[in-house]
Amino acid sequence: MRIGGAILVLWAAATATFFAVRLIPGDPAQAFLGGPGSQASAEALARVRAENGFDLPLWQQYLDYLGRLLRGELGTSYSLHAPVSEVVGEQLAGTLELALWSLVIAWVIALGLALWSVAGGPVAARIAAGIEMTAAVLPHFWLGSVLILLFATGLGWLPAIATPDARGIILPALTLAIPLAGFLAQLLREALQDAAAQPFVLTARARGESHASVFARHTLRHAAGPAIGLTGWAFGSLMSGAVVVETIFARPGLGRTLVSAVQVRDVPLVIGLTLVAAAAYLVVSVLSDLAERALNPALRIRTEAGAGA
């Protein structure tokens, strides 16, 4: 069921991207030969058209493409003149690393904020709520520039651009993590307040368990579920954010490659990158679903998995 759904999702993503990219004005044969500025000859254009089947009807091109996709061939990038699978392989690690670090940092910040807001009384809760809401609406490109200004040029603590050592990931990851942390913290805080009023928490309190024990064993566990369940969504959002952050911090990665691929009308590369992003989203949402269920026994008996991911 899940696998069938996943294949359906990937097929639809590939189809949608195929037609969307072909809708963009611009000749794919020209894209293949380096864009309109490169003054390709008429013969070269004709040859590329014939070789790549650009002269065939669109539906036939689509079927051909789908056929190749089924055989696991993502095709060759027009602009980089390298197999799409190779380009994706090269760029995937950077984006995954960025996304994972961002998730970790976002969770740490969110937990910290949520705990502080529930432990620190109404004033702390107010302040935390304000911080969360503001953090959640900060545009990445602005935030990234401010962080560079502050920590790279101002204080000189961290490099402004991606560097081979581990320090280079901190600012880009923070840029992605802060707005995400705002969202997660809001969710977490509400869930904590909600969980605290649950019958089992009240029962545990009545049994004489300590505040800390109740909190750790019941409240937090109960509250973390939905937020973890949302990690799949968060990961998807990080892929979009990576487009901006990778450009600002000059990090190699899927996002930056994708923007330039769209700009040069590199159809196979755009589809390949979209498929990878969609697949990553599917994998992470399955994982986060499983984690959520492991944390929350009530969900284990749920058979109908909502929207499915």
Partner: peptide
């Protein structure tokens, strides 16, 4: 639900990018 799922899996900014370029 599948359709919604497909759209969710499609990175939002990519979708926006394609629409804008078109």
């Amino acid at each position: 639900s599948r359709l919604i799922e497909v759209l969710l899996a499609f990175p939002g900014l990519v979708l926006a990018l394609l629409v804008m370029v078109i």
